[in-house]
């Protein structure tokens, strides 16, 4: 911005004016990091932190898509099952070996995965908007469909990559790094940057927020509400596919447990990140932070010695609730 008059405001912003809702998740993450360091000195080891960061990739990437859907006032419960389905289709394609050469084969398979993800998202979007059905119900339905299709494709077992050479060529996408930064972490950054750009800087992003904020106002302002809604589901589908691209090289298989409960983790990450479930607010970086918080909590649980393995779920649940309470109280104090 070159216009100085418009810039006067940010310049004289005092500390009290900073939007605490946006900062709160990062504060919660910092507190957790301190807690982790107290629990086990190995927690702050580079390897451990990189592990956790890398592991959070799937949920973080999917949650970026969920931020769009939820900001626009929607909901997508099918992402976990969709992940398994996309992974299954991708691996089955890789196993056909129709494209010669490892890199071309992988490239085609990746494009296919993204295409399948986008189509799955499009189906969710079109059924929700054209059928005028609650997204909760639509995506609950497609969740069952995607999951069953995966099991059908796997004939009850798991779908594994057969060619060891291909597997070896693909493996670095999860385990490799660039200047010490794991590739999945770079993928998170790239997806979040593109997501933030779309949501904050483009007309489409503005329309997403408007539709989630008040559908009537959006309609009376000439915004194509259904198209915007549908596109958020397509973005969600593409994000799921990108997560799958990073997931498949890790274990080289889609199993019946692939993506189990990922939808709830993604939604939790979005909400912890400060995005309102009722729509109208979207925080991409908060979402990434939320996904990290979820993964860090799990990591601390295993690294600590004082929680019985039977009670880990309870402690995780309590930490998430406390993180939200801290956030809310910070915001209320404004």
């Amino acid at each position: 911005m070159t216009d100085t008059t418009a810039n006067k405001n940010p310049a004289r912003r005092s500390l009290g004016d900073i939007d605490l809702r946006a900062v709160a998740p990062f504060v919660a993450l910092a507190v957790l990091l301190v807690l982790g360091a107290l629990v086990n000195p190995n927690f702050l080891g580079v390897d451990n932190l990189l592990n956790v960061l890398t592991r959070s990739a799937f949920i973080a990437i999917i949650a970026v898509g969920a931020t769009f859907v939820i900001s626009a006032g929607g909901l997508d419960l099918s992402v976990g099952a969709m992940s398994a389905f996309v992974a299954g289709v991708m691996i089955l394609f890789l196993n056909t070996g129709v494209v010669s050469g490892e890199i071309p084969m992988l490239a085609v398979a990746m494009l296919l995965a993204i295409g399948v993800g986008a189509l799955c998202g499009l189906a969710n979007g079109v059924i929700t908007t054209q059928g005028r059905i609650e997204p909760f119900i639509v995506t609950l339905g497609t969740m069952g469909i995607f999951r069953a299709l995966t099991i059908y494709l796997a004939e009850g077992g798991s779908i594994a990559m057969k060619a060891p050479d291909l597997r070896a060529a693909y493996r670095p996408v999860y385990f490799g790094n660039v200047f010490g930064v794991p590739i999945p972490v770079l993928v998170i950054l790239a997806v979040a940057l593109v997501g933030a750009f779309l949501l904050y800087r483009t007309a489409f992003g503005r329309h997403v927020i408007a539709v989630g904020s008040n559908e009537d106002v959006a309609r009376y302002s000439g915004i194509p509400v259904n198209r915007v809604r549908t596109l958020t589901y397509v973005i969600q589908g593409v994000c799921v596919a990108i997560a799958v691209l990073v997931y498949v090289p890790r274990l080289g298989a889609a199993t019946p447990t692939t993506g189990l409960l990922w939808e709830l983790q993604a939604i939790t990450a979005v909400v912890i990140g400060g995005t309102a479930l009722k729509g109208g607010v979207g925080r991409i970086w908060g979402t990434i932070c939320g996904a990290l918080i979820l993964e860090v909590v799990g990591n601390i649980m295993v690294l600590s010695n004082f929680v019985s393995e039977y009670l880990i779920g309870a402690v995780q649940g309590a930490i998430i609730i406390i993180a939200m309470l801290v956030q809310r109280s910070l915001v209320r104090r404004r």
């Binding site: 451990n48 592991r55 890790r250 447990t257 799990g298 295993v302």
Partner: peptide, 23 residues
């Protein structure tokens, strides 16, 4: 040294093992 649940899942066992290795 430790016993944790991996839920008979590859993904969860991967995470638990990573954490064991850190710990």
């Amino acid at each position: 040294l430790d016993r944790q649940f991996g839920n008979w899942s590859r993904d969860d066992a991967f995470k638990v093992m990573q954490d064991y290795l850190s710990k």
